[in-house]
Amino acid sequence: MKVDVYGAIFYDIYIYGDEPHNSKIIEVPGGSGFNIAYLLYKLGYEINFKGFLGNDYKGEYLKRIIPFHPEVKNEKTAVFISKNDIPIAVERKINESEYNDLRKNADIAIITTEISKEELKRIEKLNYKKVFFDIGPRPFISNGIFEKAFIIGTENECKYRKCDVIKIGEKGVIYKKKIFSSNKKIANYKIGLGDIFDGLFIDNYLKRKSIESSIINAIKRLEKVLDMPTAYNKIKAL
């Protein structure tokens, strides 16, 4: 099955530890759009991922290890840095770029607010048959567009517009005011869990067409990787 995914790819730097000379540093691809695209790719989908890489050494490194071909811009590759799983710095300017080659390759699209509202409006004009819209990480730019999309967001993000599925962390997921509970275990490594839920939910939904069973199955699979650092490594382990 073909799916178009629009979002960001970041050069993720994870720092673990409080002592400078006794720290662990992990460098991997990341970004909500990339995480969803990579998960679906690993599950066998034919993915056209639309993101941006810079013409720098970080971009060259990412091109060598990912299965996609994002557009290369004369900018710095986006960077995300966290310490002990708390984000401390994000450089995202390249994600405000304009797509040079914007065309529909599938009937299904997944989009995030990592890209500009102007590009989101251009994507809307492609008239996809089905759109899944995760309104993170910048829900405030999501209003007034993709009114017929299936909307996914966190509890805070869904204060900006009505969501179909609301992610509420270790408590689970809300759909039609019903809570679908998780095992309530607090993850040791939380970054990227929401993106992975999105990918697992969308995979189940596209195969089974049942929202409720797709939520339940996605939660169960997600619970298997709560104690693994980085979204990239979580996805590789699923």
Rank of each mutant, 00 (worst) to 15 (best):
V3G: 07
Y11P: 01
E19F: 03
P20S: 03
K24L: 11
K24P: 00
V28Y: 06
P29D: 09
P29K: 03
P29H: 07
G33S: 09
G33K: 13
F34W: 04
I36S: 05
Y38E: 01
L40K: 11
L40I: 05
L40Y: 11
K42P: 02
L43Q: 08
Y45Q: 11
Y45K: 13
I47P: 08
G51D: 04
G51A: 10
G51I: 04
N55I: 06
D56N: 10
Y57A: 02
Y57H: 02
E60K: 15
E60T: 12
P67F: 02
F68M: 04
P70D: 13
E71C: 07
K76V: 00
T77S: 14
T77F: 10
V79N: 05
I81S: 01
S82M: 01
I86H: 13
I88Y: 06
A89R: 03
V90F: 11
V90T: 13
E91M: 11
E91H: 10
N95C: 00
S97P: 02
E98G: 00
K104E: 12
A106F: 00
I108H: 11
A109K: 10
T112M: 08
E114I: 07
I115H: 05
E118W: 02
E119D: 12
L120R: 12
K121R: 15
K121Q: 12
R122T: 02
R122L: 08
I123S: 05
I123L: 06
K129D: 14
G136C: 10
P137V: 10
F140R: 12
I141V: 15
N143P: 00
I145Y: 13
F146E: 11
F150G: 02
I151V: 15
I152E: 08
I152G: 02
I152P: 04
N156K: 14
C158L: 07
R161S: 04
K162I: 13
K162T: 14
C163T: 09
C163R: 04
D164M: 07
I168Y: 10
G169E: 10
K171S: 05
I174N: 11
Y175A: 09
I179F: 02
S181N: 13
S181M: 10
K184C: 04
I191D: 09
D195Y: 03
I196M: 11
G199L: 08
G199S: 11
N204S: 14
K207E: 05
R208G: 00
K209L: 03
I211K: 00
E212N: 05
S214N: 01
S214M: 08
I219A: 04
K224I: 09
K224F: 01
L226G: 08
D227I: 04
A231N: 09
Y232R: 10
K236D: 15
K236W: 01
